[in-house]
Protein backbone atom coordinates (compact mmCIF):
# COMPACT_ATOMS: atom_id res chain seq x y z
CA UNK A 1 0.00 0.00 0.00
CA UNK A 2 0.99 3.60 -0.42
CA UNK A 3 0.85 5.13 3.06
CA UNK A 4 1.41 8.75 4.05
CA UNK A 5 2.93 9.29 7.49
CA UNK A 6 2.22 12.86 8.49
CA UNK A 7 3.33 15.20 11.23
CA UNK A 8 0.59 17.73 11.77
CA UNK A 9 0.76 21.12 13.41
CA UNK A 10 3.75 22.47 15.29
CA UNK A 11 4.74 19.24 16.99
CA UNK A 12 8.43 18.57 16.39
CA UNK A 13 8.63 15.06 17.81
CA UNK A 14 9.30 12.90 14.80
CA UNK A 15 11.08 9.89 16.22
CA UNK A 16 7.94 7.78 16.55
CA UNK A 17 6.70 8.71 13.11
CA UNK A 18 10.02 7.76 11.56
CA UNK A 19 10.12 4.45 13.41
CA UNK A 20 6.64 3.60 12.17
CA UNK A 21 7.58 4.73 8.66
CA UNK A 22 10.55 2.37 8.64
CA UNK A 23 8.52 -0.46 10.12
CA UNK A 24 5.92 -0.08 7.40
CA UNK A 25 8.64 -0.07 4.78
CA UNK A 26 10.00 -3.30 6.26
CA UNK A 27 6.45 -4.60 6.03
CA UNK A 28 6.53 -4.01 2.28
CA UNK A 29 4.68 -0.69 2.07
CA UNK A 30 5.60 2.43 0.15
CA UNK A 31 5.74 5.12 2.79
CA UNK A 32 5.66 8.81 2.05
CA UNK A 33 6.89 10.83 4.99
CA UNK A 34 5.60 14.39 4.94
CA UNK A 35 8.19 16.01 7.17
CA UNK A 36 7.35 18.30 10.05
CA UNK A 37 4.85 21.10 10.52
CA UNK A 38 2.31 20.24 7.90
CA UNK A 39 -1.12 21.84 7.91
CA UNK A 40 -4.22 19.68 7.49
CA UNK A 41 -4.63 21.10 3.97
CA UNK A 42 -1.08 20.13 3.04
CA UNK A 43 -1.49 16.62 4.44
CA UNK A 44 -4.66 16.05 2.43
CA UNK A 45 -3.04 17.44 -0.72
CA UNK A 46 -0.10 15.09 -0.22
CA UNK A 47 -2.37 12.07 0.29
CA UNK A 48 -4.30 13.06 -2.82
CA UNK A 49 -1.29 13.62 -5.10
CA UNK A 50 0.46 10.49 -3.89
CA UNK A 51 -2.75 8.44 -4.29
CA UNK A 52 -2.29 7.08 -0.80
CA UNK A 53 -4.61 4.37 0.55
CA UNK A 54 -3.88 5.25 4.14
CA UNK A 55 -2.78 8.25 6.17
CA UNK A 56 -1.13 7.92 9.56
CA UNK A 57 -1.03 11.12 11.56
CA UNK A 58 1.42 11.53 14.38
CA UNK A 59 0.72 14.02 17.11
CA UNK A 60 2.20 14.31 20.56
CA UNK A 61 1.55 17.94 21.32
CA UNK A 62 -2.06 17.81 22.39
CA UNK A 63 -3.46 19.36 19.25
CA UNK A 64 -5.08 16.12 18.08
CA UNK A 65 -8.61 17.14 19.01
CA UNK A 66 -8.41 20.02 16.59
CA UNK A 67 -6.15 18.72 13.83
CA UNK A 68 -7.39 15.18 13.31
CA UNK A 69 -11.10 15.95 12.77
CA UNK A 70 -10.09 18.73 10.36
CA UNK A 71 -7.95 16.33 8.35
CA UNK A 72 -10.77 13.78 8.25
CA UNK A 73 -13.28 16.38 7.07
CA UNK A 74 -10.94 17.67 4.39
CA UNK A 75 -10.31 14.14 3.11
CA UNK A 76 -14.05 13.58 2.77
CA UNK A 77 -14.51 16.98 1.13
CA UNK A 78 -11.85 15.99 -1.41
CA UNK A 79 -13.86 12.84 -2.19
CA UNK A 80 -11.29 10.59 -0.55
CA UNK A 81 -13.76 8.52 1.48
CA UNK A 82 -11.88 5.30 0.93
CA UNK A 83 -8.64 6.46 2.56
CA UNK A 84 -7.97 4.81 5.92
CA UNK A 85 -6.92 7.21 8.66
CA UNK A 86 -4.94 6.07 11.67
CA UNK A 87 -3.33 8.06 14.42
CA UNK A 88 -0.24 7.71 16.59
CA UNK A 89 1.33 9.57 19.47
CA UNK A 90 -0.12 10.84 22.71
CA UNK A 91 -3.90 10.62 22.69
CA UNK A 92 -5.57 10.48 26.11
CA UNK A 93 -8.16 7.74 26.51
CA UNK A 94 -10.90 10.29 27.09
CA UNK A 95 -10.30 11.81 23.66
CA UNK A 96 -10.32 8.60 21.67
CA UNK A 97 -14.04 8.12 21.13
CA UNK A 98 -14.29 11.50 19.49
CA UNK A 99 -11.53 10.59 17.08
CA UNK A 100 -13.15 7.26 16.18
CA UNK A 101 -16.32 9.25 15.62
CA UNK A 102 -14.53 11.32 12.98
CA UNK A 103 -13.58 8.31 10.97
CA UNK A 104 -10.25 7.33 12.52
CA UNK A 105 -9.84 3.54 12.39
CA UNK A 106 -6.92 2.99 14.75
CA UNK A 107 -5.06 4.79 17.47
CA UNK A 108 -1.54 3.63 18.31
CA UNK A 109 -0.33 5.06 21.58
CA UNK A 110 2.89 4.57 23.53
CA UNK A 111 3.74 0.92 23.95
CA UNK A 112 2.43 -0.07 20.53
CA UNK A 113 4.54 -2.86 19.10
CA UNK A 114 6.14 -2.36 15.72
CA UNK A 115 4.03 -5.11 14.24
CA UNK A 116 0.67 -3.69 15.17
CA UNK A 117 0.36 -1.06 12.44
CA UNK A 118 1.46 -3.66 9.91
CA UNK A 119 -1.16 -6.14 11.05
CA UNK A 120 -3.71 -3.34 11.08
CA UNK A 121 -2.97 -2.46 7.46
CA UNK A 122 -3.14 -6.13 6.52
CA UNK A 123 -6.60 -6.20 8.06
CA UNK A 124 -7.53 -3.09 6.13
CA UNK A 125 -6.41 -4.79 2.94
CA UNK A 126 -8.45 -7.90 3.65
CA UNK A 127 -11.52 -5.85 4.50
CA UNK A 128 -11.10 -3.79 1.33
CA UNK A 129 -11.06 -7.00 -0.73
CA UNK A 130 -14.35 -7.92 0.90
CA UNK A 131 -15.82 -4.46 0.35
CA UNK A 132 -16.09 -3.81 4.06
CA UNK A 133 -15.80 -0.26 5.40
CA UNK A 134 -12.24 0.93 6.13
CA UNK A 135 -12.18 4.51 4.90
CA UNK A 136 -12.61 7.83 6.62
CA UNK A 137 -15.89 8.32 4.79
CA UNK A 138 -17.20 4.78 4.81
CA UNK A 139 -19.14 5.05 8.03
CA UNK A 140 -19.76 2.08 10.28
CA UNK A 141 -17.86 1.74 13.51
CA UNK A 142 -15.15 -0.74 12.64
CA UNK A 143 -11.96 0.09 14.41
CA UNK A 144 -8.74 -1.63 15.33
CA UNK A 145 -8.44 -3.05 18.81
Amino acid sequence: MRVVIAKAGLDGHDRGAKIIARALRDGGHEVIYTGLRRTPEQIVAIARDEDASAVGISTLSGAHARLIPTICELLRAEGMDEVTVFVGGIIPDTDREALYGCGVRAIFGPGTSINEPITFLQNVNERTQQNLPVGVGHGGDWKWS
Partner: peptide, 8 residues
Protein backbone atom coordinates in the same frame (compact mmCIF):
# COMPACT_ATOMS: atom_id res chain seq x y z
CA UNK B 1 8.81 -1.57 0.59
CA UNK B 2 10.25 1.92 0.37
CA UNK B 3 10.69 4.99 2.52
CA UNK B 4 10.00 7.91 0.22
CA UNK B 5 11.26 10.93 2.08
CA UNK B 6 12.10 13.47 -0.63
CA UNK B 7 8.69 15.06 -0.28
CA UNK B 8 9.61 16.17 3.24
Amino acid sequence: GALLGDRA
